[in-house]
Design a protein around this nucleic acid. Structure first.
Length: 423
RNA sequence: GGAGAAAUGGCAGAGCGGUUGAAUGCACCAGUCUUGAAAACUGGCAUACCGCAAGGUAUCGGGGGUUCGAAUCCCUCUUUCUCCGCCA
């Protein structure tokens, strides 16, 4: 959510930058500012009336004490008037505030200057490519075939228990999954992130805080009986730890990581692209989150990007880094780098990580602030990234490291899996 | 799920209808004293909105009500604690 003063002072620039998202925001921005003018004047009218009423109440109190009941009663007549008119103003103010917040909720974050203009993933900018494609002396199999052949993942069993998109990991499949989780968590800890295990269900306020609500309500599983949402990513509960918090300047940087399952309804996506592990309703992910000083957040973003490169390098996977264009950028993000690993058997790139700087967009919703040098409270910056999402990493490992006799486990994982090969 | 009690500033904890945004203590910050530190003393120390400022308004878990006036009374929701029930 953008701040009104920012919107007011940079109106043209903001509208211009929204063009990158293919969004014509002029009318909505104008209307927000118009509502704000009304809000201010209503507020000060109301304040004046309340000030008068407060003053009268004190006078009346004094008169009663002195036994001057008649005079007191005269003043009461005026307070009654004030009460009625201030009630009207209060209602007007509440309505204006509600309109304003509704309008603000509709505005996505303003893209950073580096973000390329574009409508779809075709316009994303390729930043770098790493590693080399595996070569095979045989026809490589897609991961769903390998998973079934070696008894690693049973998709049909998941259908029986829950439904499509809820795989059951078994045997070495389960162990490899757990090994990856522990590997990612250890790497995050080595990079200075402290681990948390947050709730997997969150309330409405948390969903609003990180920006999943009110917009993307349909993407989350909603437990209506208790009005709780299953988390679509650990970003939600971990970032919300800092909702309504005022930090000290030397608290920065706050670096948290956590492993959680993630739940996504993925309404409307079916077909070949979602085969096997490519798209699931429940999947595991290790997330890294940073809360940073506004001056340091882009440094932190680079640091996070490098952390993820390090993970993929250690696993020996071929990958590329993309800078998302405006049209592909998430609602709450100012800038996002996507990481994709190459899947040999499917001959396509699979997204395994998304690293974003939200600048003050989430912080404003979260009321996540800090006291700056001059003692004023200021919004912090929030960032997060997947480090990493498990299913597509698993898919890439199976597909890229398959041999005629089995699947070779990358050396870095041996201490975690305690086996070196799946056969 | 049933019964009872409670919710006040960073923390502890007064106030229970009238200049109370809120006593007091602790913590924290600045200063005095000191060779330095501690102690002592002095001052400062919530958030938001409006305003150039002076200042004004709102907030004592959330929402609503009574009253000229509410942290204080009433209703309601939420949360916490105690007891009972159920339970990994």
């Amino acid at each position: 959510m953008l701040q009104i003063p920012f919107l007011r002072e940079n109106t043209d620039d903001i509208i211009d930058r929204y063009q990158k998202r293919g969004l014509d925001a002029k009318s909505i921005v104008d209307s927000i500012l118009e509502i704000d003018d009304q809000r201010k004047s209503t507020q000060s009218q109301l304040d004046d009336e309340l000030a008068e009423a407060n003053k009268l109440a004190k006078q009346i109190g004094g008169l009663f004490k002195d036994g001057k009941v008649d005079e007191a009663n005269k003043l009461k007549a005026r307070t009654k008037e004030l009460k009625e008119s201030s009630q009207v103003l209060k209602e007007k103010l509440h309505a204006l505030e509600a309109n304003q917040i509704q309008a603000l909720y509709q505005l996505p974050n303003v893209p950073n200057a580096k973000v390329p203009k574009g409508n779809s993933e075709a316009d994303n900018e390729l930043i770098s490519e790493h590693g080399t494609s595996p070569s095979f002396s045989f026809e490589p199999k897609p991961h769903w075939e390998l998973a079934s052949e070696f008894g690693l993942i049973d998709f049909e069993l998941g259908v029986k228990i829950a439904g499509a998109g809820f795989p059951v990991y078994q045997g070495k499949g389960a162990k490899l999954q757990r090994a990856l989780i522990n590997f990612f968590l250890d790497e995050a800890e080595n990079a200075g992130y402290s681990e948390v295990i947050p709730p997997l269900l969150v309330n409405e306020a948390s969903g609003i805080g990180t920006g999943q609500l009110p917009d993307k309500e349909g993407q989350m599983y909603h437990v209506t009986e208790d009005d709780l949402y299953l988390i679509p990513t650990a970003e939600v509960p971990i970032t919300n730890i800092y909702r309504d918090v005022i930090l000290k300047e030397n608290d920065f940087p706050i670096k948290s990581c956590g492993f959680t399952p993630c739940f996504r309804r993925e309404a409307g996506s079916y077909g070949k692209d979602v085969r096997g592990l490519n798209r699931l309703h429940q999947f595991d992910k290790v997330e890294i989150v940073q809360i940073q000083h506004p001056n340091k957040s882009y440094e932190a973003l680079d640091q996070m990007v490098n952390h993820i490169k390090g993970l993929l390098d250690k696993l020996g996977l071929q990958y590329r880094v993309l800078l998302l264009c405006g049209g592909d950028l998430g609602f709450t993000s100012a800038i996002t780098y996507d990481f994709e690993v190459y899947s040999a058997a499917q001959d396509k790139w699979l997204e395994v990580s998304s690293v974003s700087n939200f600048e003050t967009f989430q912080a404003n919703r979260l009321k996540l602030r800090f006291k700056n040098d001059s003692g004023k409270t200021e919004l912090a910056h929030t960032l997060n990234g997947s480090a990493l999402a498990l299913p597509r990493i698993m898919a890439a490992l199976l597909e890229n490291f398959q041999t005629e006799t089995g699947i070779e486990i990358p050396e870095e994982l041996h201490p975690y899996t305690k086996f070196e090969k799946i056969d």
